[in-house]
Write a protein that binds this DNA or RNA. Structure first.
Lengths: 338, 338
DNA sequence: CTGAAAGCGCTTACAG
DNA sequence: CTGAAAGCGCTTACAG
């Protein structure tokens, strides 16, 4: 069933069918309705390959990512799919490594060969300016997700990591903690910087300061969380609470604390970030900060689709608010409870 | 840069370029080498959309899944990508729900519209015979991953879940456990049936039987693990070990045990299945059974590609062996240690 | 508001 | 072993 078959059935030219498919405005409503009815009846689906060939651009959206958090990527894929479902677009996944020597040229080949309609860029690739310049150079539309505004409003989904971290810090302060540690992700991640800054601001709003001795830079990994926690927990006075930049590191903190014989939350409160699948399943269930990843993926997809030739371009930046999920890994410090 | 440009540069017809691209055997080696050199030099990449249109089939592989385990899906995607990298194929993801009323017709539309080259089917969709019949009917190549052989050898990647579960059961028996519980996944999953059977066989090889009272059917979810564990742990005598059909449920068992004041592994040994990201991060680190998901994805992709018109078809079924990962959630039972 | 012609970048089927 | 013609299913650019 091709455009020619439908044209024959509708007794119009195939150009008219094409106009219906592409929602052309210059078309009699009656003609449109009649054609639409026939399309529906015979179950005609325009061939995206043929359209793409004629258009000079495919109906494929690329998700380019280097995020090791599986749940994050799956949720993001789902969010993008929520939006493109029924639109004729499909999602092509492209994990990558910024470490790889051909990082840029591989992605460029991928985008050019497939004539991708555009790409969605979650962190950390979303922060890679060389990558962005390449997309600009080849004219590939994109939308970026990051913890700070890095681009034109219509291309940005900004996550308010700073606020989420501030809320976490205030939660600890309000529980009565005064000696609070923070383990951030790598300083090369905007999210790590923003969360760090959020901790500082959140504590400041309660008249507290983040003592630099109680700050450590981690690698967003379980092992780095263990290592950093061992350092911080050896300090005198020992921190009564630690905010880790993500759940992986928070799990590491819990592990390190346990191996020192500390009880959580009695001896140490712990907060993570991400609300990953394990967060509610470890013991004690982890207090953490949640970002609506799936929704972020959906918004990013919408902003990308809005860059299509006929569409109305997005003008406004979207700010996504995280929320604190209080579970049982945080409590008042021992001293203030005595 | 199109096939015409390359033809002009090489001073041959575009048909010859096409023959080079498609590895046609009837081509002088010298011509091939000369064309290849020019292709390399100018960085020509054949347009998959144009090729697909002419071929009547795209260069897209679909991953259709309804697996809620994010790490599983990501690893599988990675495995498929490992194989198709550089082949000109790309991976399109298509999560779905077997509950959805349009489940079959949605997938059919997807496959037909995109003219997918073929699809990779992990469990549970891989076990859906109505889905398979549909693929047969429309002539869509596929490869299936399942815990039992369900199809022609060339289309099957069989995971030896039964053996993995048997190994887990033997591990418990060899530690000295005699009262062992098993919580399986839903009986509508082949993996659940196979793992269950594996437990029975593993115990039998040590002269033990799985008392039906100590068996419960769960839903492969954390909550179902908690519920089932509460039932099993109320039994008299209390089981000294529980093998859960996946890590999610094993985490639920640990939770339930903890809330009853039981220490793991002192009072209860727990084994899971999957070696999910949380397995090594919970306390105690979970003994579990690992399947090489990424490798399975790669094999499935290879079997799919082997169904291409020119390729040599796969004749043999692939059997994938799981491995037991012993961590700290299993130990000898208290009595035998006294 | 609608249509006939040419073209997107490839491949198949047929020649030679 | 290589090539000229026709076609895959659409769209663009031009008519009317």
């Amino acid at each position: 069933m091709t455009i020619n078959d439908v044209a024959r059935l509708a007794k119009v030219s195939k150009k008219t069918i094409s106009r219906v498919i592409n929602n052309s405005p210059l078309l009699k409503q009656e003609t449109r309705d009649r054609v639409l009815a026939i399309i529906e009846e015979v179950g005609y689906q325009p061939d995206p390959q043929a359209r793409g060939l004629a258009f000079g651009s495919s109906f494929l959206i690329g998700l380019i990512y280097d995020n090791p958090n599986a749940q994050y990527v799956i949720d993001m894929q789902q969010g993008i799919l929520d939006v493109i479902r029924g639109s004729g677009y499909e999602l092509v996944v492209h994990p990558c490594s910024r470490q790889h020597p051909n990082f840029l040229s591989d992605i460029r080949k991928f985008v050019e060969r497939q004539r991708l309609f555009g790409v969605v860029l979650p962190p950390r690739v979303s922060e890679d300016e060389a990558l962005i310049e390449m997309f600009e150079a080849i004219g590939c539309p994109y939308s970026r997700i990051a913890a700070v505004s890095l681009d034109l409003p219509g291309r940005m989904v900004v996550t308010h990591d700073r606020q989420g971290a501030a809320e976490a810090a205030r939660h600890l302060a309000d529980l009565g903690h005064r000696v609070i540690g923070h383990i951030s992700g790598p300083a090369s991640f905007r999210s790590a910087l923003e969360r760090h800054q959020g901790v500082i601001e959140g504590l400041a709003s309660r008249g507290l300061a983040l003592d630099p001795r109680y700050y450590a830079e981690g690698g967003y990994t379980f092992e780095s969380g263990i290592l950093a926690a061992q350092t911080l927990l050896a300090l005198d006075p020992r921190p009564t609470a630690i905010f880790a930049g993500n759940d992986e590191m928070a799990a590491g903190v819990i592990r390190a604390a346990r191996e020192m014989g500390l009880d959580i939350p009695r001896d140490l409160s712990v907060i993570g970030f991400d609300d990953s699948p394990m967060a509610g399943k470890v013991w004690p269930p982890l207090t953490t900060v949640r970002l609506p990843i799936r929704e972020m993926g959906a918004i990013a997809a919408r902003k990308l689709l809005a860059q299509a030739p006929g569409a109305v371009p997005e003008q406004r930046e979207t700010l996504v608010e995280p929320s604190l999920v209080v579970r049982r890994s945080t409590a008042a410090p021992l001293l203030s409870r005595v």
